[in-house]
Every structure is written in C-alpha cells, then in structure tokens.
C-alpha cells in the first residue's frame, strides 16, 4: 500500500546498483595483470565515463523534481534511483582511481564526491528518522497548533498573575517576554535555549525555564492565604508551558537536522561538478 523511496518498485534500483557494483568489481579484478590499475586504462576510462555520466544524471534530480509536468516516472522513483545509484558511485569511482591519490585536482574531485555521497546517506537516514520522531513528539499535531497552545497558556498566565503580588507578576511576565525560540543555524541544530528571566531587577539565564520554575516553586512554599491556591494554579500552567516549549524546541532541532545535510549536499554537488570538469579537461590537456 504504502511505499517509500527505499522500497520503490520492490527495490528495483537497489538491485540495479548491486549489479553495477558487482560488474565493476569483477571487471577490475579481471583486468590485465601487467597493467597498473589507474584512470587511463580502458577499464579506467569506462568506469570514469560511467561515473561522470552518473554524476550529471544525479545532479539533474534538482531539475526533475521541479519539472511538475514531466510524465516520465515519479519523483519517488527518481529519488530511489538517485539514492542507490549514487551510493554505487562510491565503488565505481574508487575503482576508477585505481587507488592512486595525491594532492591534486583529481583527488579533490574524488573527495568532494565522497563528501556529497556521505552527506546524502545522512540525508536518507534523516528522512527516514526525523519525520516519524517529530510526528510522535507532537502527537500528530502541527507545530502551528502547538504555538497556538503556547499563546493560549501565555495569555492565561498573564491574566492569572495580574491579580497576584508584584514580584510574581514581574517574574512570570519577564520569563514569558524573554523566552527565546529558534535562532541561528547553530542554535537550531544544537537546541540552544538563551531564554532569560528577570528576578529582583537582575537578568538570569532561564534555560528550559528551569530558573523561573524553581523561583515559582520556592515562592509557592512561602505563599499564604488565598495567594496559595492562585499561585499553585500558575505553577501548574507554567509546568505545561515548559513542556510545550520543550516540544517546540525539539521539533525545531529535529527539523533543522532533517534539512541541514542539504546545505552541504547541494553546494558541494556544484563544487564537485566544477572539480569534475577541471579533472576531465586537465586529464586530456596534460596527458
């Protein structure tokens, strides 16, 4: 019923990739023994041409997935082939090098290719892991839903503390106002929380709302009379707020992780394309 890109068409491209890798290895092992394996042999050329064409085709996915009117296959099928054939390139290109590495543009192209493939493999893992983890984290709600709940709780808290003592009002409203979500790329990926809270005129870090909660709990222990009931309601709401913030922060982190690899994968693919062109041109000029 439900088919992801990994088992598209019963893993057709997995088997194509296996066949390609198998054939390359067999050809490599069977090549004439007196010849040092390198890119210049007939097998080297064959593997190199195949690898270069594969790279061009792999990069073309960027066009295909935006060509919505295209009738040729589904994007899922293309992604499936992209993943399996792209991975097989690790073997094909390595055999093409004949294990001759150096500090030159040829090895640069090879290294770039490896980084692109490894980042892609991370992408496969991320795409298979994070959507499910995020859906479970949010219990089938959207992030917008959770932000709305947070907004409701913040409004509720502000109303609830309006009838309480000035110190409580100050801490709760400053904690709400100084709560920070998201931030730059690093903050998102690492889940950095630079929220603050103001207590007695001093600003303190309030990571994961711990400081504010601690203050409220302590304040509750010395509350008297009608204040006790109202404040304990505030503490309960604040606990719920803390949980929502954790969900939001984790979801943002997961989303960042789910997409971060693309920032490596795509630009390095372009760099690889340039290095590959240089490699091919220089090989023919300086041969």
């Amino acid at each position: 019923m439900h088919i992801s890109f990994l088992n598209h068409a019963n893993g057709r491209y997995f088997w194509v990739a296996i066949a390609l890798v198998g054939a390359s290895i067999v050809a490599y092992l069977l090549q004439e023994p007196h010849q040092t394996p390198n890119g210049g042999t007939w097998l080297g050329y064959t593997l190199g041409t195949m690898g270069a064409l594969l790279i061009l085709w792999l990069i073309y996915l960027g066009r295909r997935k935006r060509n919505f009117a295209a009738g040729w296959g589904t994007v899922r099928g293309w992604v499936s082939a992209h993943v399996y054939l792209g991975t097989s390139l690790l073997v094909v290109a390595t055999l093409h090098t004949g294990f001759q590495f150096g500090i030159n543009v040829h090895t640069l192209a090879y290294v770039l290719m490896c980084v692109v493939i490894v980042s892609g493999l991370f992408g496969v893992w991320a795409y298979r892991t994070y959507p499910e983890a995020r859906n479970e984290l949010k219990r089938s709600q959207t992030l917008d839903d959770i932000f709305l709940q947070l907004e409701d709780i913040d409004g509720q808290l502000k109303r609830d503390v309006s009838a309480l003592a000035a110190d409580i009002r100050g801490v709760v409203s400053s904690a709400i106002d100084r709560t920070e979500i998201g931030g730059g790329m690093y903050a998102q990926l690492a889940g950095v929380d630079s929220s603050k809270v103001m207590i007695d005129g001093n600003v303190y870090p309030n990571t994961d709302q711990v400081r504010a909660v601690a203050w409220l709990v302590e304040r509750l222990s010395v509350a008297e009379g009608s204040e006790t009931g109202k404040l304990s309601a505030v503490v309960r709401s604040y606990g719920a707020r803390q949980k929502l913030l954790q969900v939001i922060r984790t979801d943002i982190r997961f989303q960042a992780l789910q997409e971060a690899w693309l920032y490596l994968h795509v630009p390095l693919s372009i760099a690889l394309l340039a290095a590959l062109l240089t490699h091919i041109v220089s090989v023919f000029i300086y041969w």
Partner: peptide
C-alpha cells in the same frame, strides 16, 4: 501530480 512529485512516497 501531487503523488508523482512526492520524493519520499508519503
């Protein structure tokens, strides 16, 4: 096209 454009099969 919605289904054909989905890269993951969701």
């Amino acid at each position: 096209s919605c289904v054909r454009a989905c890269p993951t099969g969701a």
